[in-house]
Design a protein around this nucleic acid. Structure first.
Lengths: 341, 341
DNA sequence: GCAAGATGCGACGTGTCTTGTCGCTTGCTA
DNA sequence: TAGCAAGCGACAAGACACGTCGCATCTTGC
């Protein structure tokens, strides 16, 4: 880095280096990091900058319990450069509504400052008699939202950091039955968020096989003294498409043919199933014939199953059979146990 | 505002006032806005700040085609204070993967700078031999992702602004059949994003009834000279729960009773259907009895329908009947047309 | 097409602010 | 108890931020 003397720029760098509330950073460390970035500055100046300049104008807090003082921002502080515009703020609000059903609250909490920044902007408009955004914007999630799994904030932070910084973790883990509690060392290889549950993929202790660990079942977590081991030849996409998350998936697309009722046809013209998709009217009815190349996965089949009697799958035959079998089993079950209402 | 003299603070305000690329702001306007915020500054100083200070250190571009020069940021520029930490960056990557199937690309584009900021941070780690995040993180969406509707960037921006700033819009709109093109004035009252289609709720011209307009069918849009009219007594939540989006919904929760197979039971212990939910083993089988208070909406029913033969709904009777009827209709349709595969 | 006003810019001088240094204090450690 | 690390007040030197002026250029309105 070339020698930068600009004061302003040093201040900005400083503001970027200081973490938000759970974290903190000591003055000497700050000085070191500034030096790495080309700012040759005296200790005294740094102290002055923090206490007499920045702390007066920002929610910047000093932890002076022990001597190398440590600095951090208020939990809620956030500042975008450039400032959010109205459409972006609206997008953030929508995004938050959707994500609330998809990611654990703690994970969304990581973005809380950004979301509240957006809400603050909209609230400010409201004070000028505008917006009333809270009454005007809604996101309706796709499909039934199950309640996201509960999860400790520190768990998410440690796991994210370990995964990306290639560190091993010592964890205490609750077994599936929720009865046995075990401790071992994990070597994180990947992370998959599926619906509202997030899984860490890792090898255990000295073993080589990849296993899944639901984050909400990790009870205690700490960086391990053991060195992280890479799992040779592990490919996350292969792993997923091999069906590890209940969605075995043929690698090739399949040709789908189905008859659909008008309402479904209309939905599909707006939001198609695939890039190339055709809908042609059927003779002697108001239904339409749908053709498309779709992925051969459980998700797509599930979608058709959910449409119920509004669609009739013609091809692939396997799906047609699946739907028939499913309907037959439902009926036989219902007939067997005619539970009165 | 009290008189603020701090240079740093003025610079920050300046950086917040300058918009990203499609937008731009003229020097005199900047001076005016600064003054509104308590920064009394000479024109000359402002010019110097922009050209000699900020533009040297930020992707700040000057449009000097015509004389009041206009300033703007590079399309991609984004800066968080404090800087993103690793867990937040990871969260953003996950959020983007999820949202890609839920919001139109253009809407997500509004947040592109934030997402690319996160990716940049992770890429930087990679250069230090860490992360390889792109190979290690996946989001598996809940349910079949239809392709989000296509939409013009300017449409989204105008609609968002009009809705929140209470302005009327002149639009050209493609009718549902995609054949008739009509022009009228809309008075926006609300916005609903449902799955991957976003609808503007508005009154038309001088009429009083609320109608829905899918954003992707708005062809041309401009702020109207007509004054915006509020729709008296309009309540978005009432509107939605009255079934306007295909999900009529009883206002009260219903008591759900169902028998579920072990795999489903397991899923529900991790991500419950509702806050209060019980699962007790059934005698003489490995299935479990599920009880919960759930919303009386189409979404929940749809979810059970998708589970197929893995669950048997006992109560409410209406749902049980719906599922039976549905299965019967599927079978009768399949038997009527035994399309060979 | 011209004049008046608006905007940009280089130069300069003043006054403020920044910054390194020094010396003292405090708290921890060996 | 000495030594070290960190924080802080004071001070002086020097950097730089800022208003002013004069000129050039562009825009606008008649």
């Amino acid at each position: 880095m070339s020698e930068i003397r600009e004061t302003l720029f040093r201040y900005l760098t400083l503001l970027q280096l200081i973490p938000r509330s759970p974290g903190r950073i000591a003055t000497p460390v700050l000085q070191e990091k500034l030096q790495e970035r080309g700012f040759q500055i005296d200790t005294r100046s740094l102290q002055r900058d923090l206490r007499d300049k920045l702390a007066l104008h920002f929610p910047l807090i000093c932890d002076d319990d022990s001597k190398p003082y440590r600095w951090y921002f208020d939990r809620e502080f956030h500042c975008n450069l450039p400032a959010l515009d109205v459409p972006s703020a609206l997008t953030l609000v929508l995004a938050e509504e959707y994500l609330r059903g998809l990611l654990p609250p703690v994970v969304i909490g990581q973005l809380a400052p950004q979301f509240s920044d957006a809400r603050r902007l909209l609230d400010d408009m409201e004070r000028n008699g505008l917006s009333q955004w809270a009454k005007r914007v809604r996101a309706i999630p796709n499909g039934k939202a199950l309640l996201p799994a509960q999860l400790e904030e520190s768990t998410w932070q440690s796991v994210a950091q370990a995964l990306l910084e290639k560190k091993a973790l010592d964890v205490t883990y609750l077994s599936r039955s929720r009865e046995v509690r075990k401790s071992f060392t994990l070597h994180p290889q990947g992370l998959v968020s599926r619906h509202s549950v997030t899984y860490l993929l890792a090898t255990v202790n000295d073993y080589d096989d990849i296993r899944q660990f639901a984050l909400q079942r990790i009870e205690a977590v700490a960086f391990s003294n053991n060195a992280w081991r890479e799992s040779e030849g592990f490919d996350l996409d292969d792993y997923i498409s091999s069906g590890a998350f209940g969605y075995p998936q043929g690698s090739d697309d399949v040709r789908l043919v189905a008859h659909v009722e008008p309402q479904v046809a209309w939905l599909l013209t707006e939001t198609p199933l695939a890039e190339r998709q055709t809908l042609v009217p059927l003779p002697d009815s108001d239904w339409q014939r749908l053709e498309a190349e779709v992925p051969d996965d459980q998700q797509t089949l599930w979608w058709f199953r959910g449409m119920g009697a509004s669609v009739e799958v013609i091809e692939p035959q396997a799906w047609r059979d699946d739907i028939r079998t499913n309907a037959e089993r439902i009926l036989s079950r219902l007939d067997k146990a005619p539970a009165g209402g």
